[in-house]
Computed example of a mutant assay.
Amino acid sequence: MPGKTHAAIGVMLTTMILLPTNDIKYTLANTALAVVGAFTVDIDTAKSQGATFLKKIFGTIVAVIILGAILKIEYNINIFNYILENRAIHQLIPGLSILVGALIMGVITPHRSFTHSMVGVIAFTIPIYMLAGPLYKGFLIGYIAHILADMLNEKEVKILWPMKKGICLNLCSADGIVAKILFVVSIGVTVLQYKNYFNI
């Protein structure tokens, strides 16, 4: 399915699960991570929106690190204080290391294998939890929603990777009418959730 459909499904489910019992700021932050989770699953496909999205994020992070180093060396301005004040360094370094390892594994394994498996769910969710704390919930919802949506079409999802056998329900094509309907329904349900939240 297209990346926008995966993202919309992740946003819808995160909103449905979290908005009724949490404040809007927490829900919106989790919703943002749901989009990241939904896109992360497809980093095993070079041309996917997920891979492109994550490459842009990675490029931005590298640019920020370089800029931060220059500002620190030249002007003694530390732009990383906010990050370090909010997450302990002993969580940041291992979390980033595990995340980088999972990303590398995702890139070098075939499509619908590692990143589409329970091993992938765990490998990505642990570092997100270490880096973002309770906001891992949105990431996890978006990630799992992507895998479940992929099971609807004609290509196998190796959910029990490294086992070779996969699951496919063969109910629709990856980019057919069902994907378009799921996108529209997901957007509609999300809007209704916020409409009810604000009593509009």
Results as ranks from 00 to 15, higher is better:
M1P: 09
G3Q: 08
K4V: 11
M12P: 06
L19Y: 06
L19D: 08
P20W: 02
N22P: 05
I24K: 14
Y26C: 04
N30F: 12
A32W: 12
L33G: 06
V36M: 07
A38I: 03
T45P: 00
K47E: 13
K47L: 04
Q49A: 08
G50D: 01
T52D: 11
T52S: 11
T52E: 13
I57D: 01
I65D: 02
G68V: 06
A69P: 02
L71M: 13
K72V: 07
E74D: 11
F80T: 15
N81Y: 08
L84S: 08
L84K: 11
N86A: 02
A88K: 14
H90N: 14
Q91E: 10
Q91W: 15
L92F: 13
L92I: 15
P94D: 14
G101S: 15
V119M: 14
I122Q: 05
Y129R: 13
P134S: 10
Y143V: 06
L148S: 05
A149Q: 02
A149M: 06
K155H: 15
E156Q: 12
K158V: 03
M163F: 15
K164V: 07
N170M: 08
N170L: 05
S173R: 06
A179G: 09
K180D: 15
I181D: 11
V184Q: 03
I187Q: 04
I187R: 00
G188T: 13
V189G: 09
V191C: 02
N196C: 05
F198Y: 12
I200V: 13
